[in-house]
Protein backbone atom coordinates (compact mmCIF):
# COMPACT_ATOMS: atom_id res chain seq x y z
CA UNK A 1 0.00 0.00 0.00
CA UNK A 2 1.40 3.38 -0.97
CA UNK A 3 1.45 6.20 1.62
CA UNK A 4 -1.15 8.13 -0.40
CA UNK A 5 -3.52 5.13 -0.34
CA UNK A 6 -3.02 4.88 3.43
CA UNK A 7 -4.03 8.50 3.95
CA UNK A 8 -7.02 8.12 1.62
CA UNK A 9 -8.21 4.99 3.47
CA UNK A 10 -7.96 6.83 6.80
CA UNK A 11 -9.92 9.75 5.31
CA UNK A 12 -12.55 7.33 3.98
CA UNK A 13 -12.87 5.74 7.44
CA UNK A 14 -13.24 9.12 9.17
CA UNK A 15 -15.82 10.14 6.55
CA UNK A 16 -17.83 6.94 7.03
CA UNK A 17 -17.76 7.26 10.82
CA UNK A 18 -18.93 10.88 10.49
CA UNK A 19 -21.71 9.74 8.17
CA UNK A 20 -22.69 7.00 10.62
CA UNK A 21 -22.81 9.54 13.48
CA UNK A 22 -24.93 11.94 11.42
CA UNK A 23 -27.32 9.17 10.39
CA UNK A 24 -27.72 7.18 13.61
CA UNK A 25 -27.45 9.56 16.58
CA UNK A 26 -30.51 11.38 17.89
CA UNK A 27 -28.82 14.40 19.46
CA UNK A 28 -28.60 17.45 17.17
CA UNK A 29 -25.15 18.45 18.50
CA UNK A 30 -23.76 15.00 17.68
CA UNK A 31 -25.11 15.24 14.14
CA UNK A 32 -23.17 18.50 13.77
CA UNK A 33 -20.08 16.68 15.12
CA UNK A 34 -20.57 14.03 12.42
CA UNK A 35 -20.72 16.73 9.73
CA UNK A 36 -17.50 18.25 11.11
CA UNK A 37 -15.81 14.84 10.89
CA UNK A 38 -16.86 14.50 7.24
CA UNK A 39 -15.45 17.95 6.44
CA UNK A 40 -12.20 17.00 8.19
CA UNK A 41 -11.94 13.82 6.12
CA UNK A 42 -12.26 15.91 2.95
CA UNK A 43 -9.48 18.19 4.23
CA UNK A 44 -7.21 15.20 4.84
CA UNK A 45 -7.84 14.08 1.25
CA UNK A 46 -6.94 17.55 -0.05
CA UNK A 47 -3.70 17.69 1.94
CA UNK A 48 -2.71 14.14 0.97
CA UNK A 49 -3.27 14.81 -2.73
CA UNK A 50 -1.36 18.10 -2.39
CA UNK A 51 1.60 16.34 -0.76
CA UNK A 52 1.81 13.40 -3.17
CA UNK A 53 0.71 15.28 -6.28
CA UNK A 54 3.09 16.32 -9.06
CA UNK A 55 3.28 20.02 -8.05
CA UNK A 56 3.25 20.45 -4.25
CA UNK A 57 5.02 23.81 -4.59
CA UNK A 58 1.86 25.27 -6.22
CA UNK A 59 0.07 25.36 -2.81
CA UNK A 60 -3.36 24.82 -4.41
CA UNK A 61 -4.49 21.89 -2.27
CA UNK A 62 -3.22 23.53 0.91
CA UNK A 63 -5.12 26.76 0.15
CA UNK A 64 -8.28 24.74 -0.54
CA UNK A 65 -7.90 23.04 2.86
CA UNK A 66 -7.36 26.37 4.65
CA UNK A 67 -10.49 27.89 3.11
CA UNK A 68 -12.40 24.70 3.86
CA UNK A 69 -11.39 24.95 7.54
CA UNK A 70 -12.65 28.55 7.64
CA UNK A 71 -16.00 27.56 6.10
CA UNK A 72 -16.30 24.62 8.52
CA UNK A 73 -15.74 26.97 11.48
CA UNK A 74 -18.52 29.26 10.23
CA UNK A 75 -20.81 26.24 9.76
CA UNK A 76 -20.13 25.04 13.32
CA UNK A 77 -20.90 28.47 14.80
CA UNK A 78 -24.20 28.83 12.93
CA UNK A 79 -25.26 25.21 13.52
CA UNK A 80 -24.61 25.27 17.25
CA UNK A 81 -26.35 28.67 17.49
CA UNK A 82 -29.40 27.12 15.82
CA UNK A 83 -29.36 24.16 18.24
CA UNK A 84 -29.14 26.50 21.24
CA UNK A 85 -31.99 28.66 19.89
CA UNK A 86 -34.14 25.56 19.31
CA UNK A 87 -33.36 24.25 22.80
CA UNK A 88 -34.32 27.59 24.34
CA UNK A 89 -37.65 27.39 22.53
CA UNK A 90 -38.58 23.71 22.89
CA UNK A 91 -36.26 22.42 25.66
CA UNK A 92 -35.02 19.48 23.58
CA UNK A 93 -32.11 18.51 21.32
CA UNK A 94 -33.74 15.22 20.28
CA UNK A 95 -33.97 15.14 16.49
CA UNK A 96 -36.85 12.62 16.52
CA UNK A 97 -39.06 15.15 18.32
CA UNK A 98 -37.83 18.16 16.31
CA UNK A 99 -40.63 18.30 13.79
CA UNK A 100 -41.04 22.04 13.29
CA UNK A 101 -38.70 25.02 13.45
CA UNK A 102 -41.38 27.70 13.14
CA UNK A 103 -41.51 29.83 16.28
Amino acid sequence: MTPLAGFLIVAALVFSIGLAIALTRRNAILVLIGIELMLNAANLNLIAFWRFGPHPEALTGMMFAIFSIAVAAAEAAVGLGLVIAYHRHSKTTDLDTMTRMKG
Binding site: S16, L23, T24, R25, D96
Partner: peptide, 14 residues
Protein backbone atom coordinates in the same frame (compact mmCIF):
# COMPACT_ATOMS: atom_id res chain seq x y z
CA UNK B 1 -28.93 7.77 22.06
CA UNK B 2 -29.49 6.10 18.71
CA UNK B 3 -32.15 6.72 16.14
CA UNK B 4 -34.82 4.09 15.55
CA UNK B 5 -33.47 3.32 12.06
CA UNK B 6 -29.83 3.18 13.16
CA UNK B 7 -29.24 -0.06 11.25
CA UNK B 8 -30.04 1.60 7.93
CA UNK B 9 -27.65 4.47 8.71
CA UNK B 10 -24.90 2.03 9.68
CA UNK B 11 -25.38 0.02 6.48
CA UNK B 12 -25.26 3.22 4.40
CA UNK B 13 -22.05 4.36 6.12
CA UNK B 14 -20.43 0.94 5.69
Amino acid sequence: SFSSNWLLGLVLAA
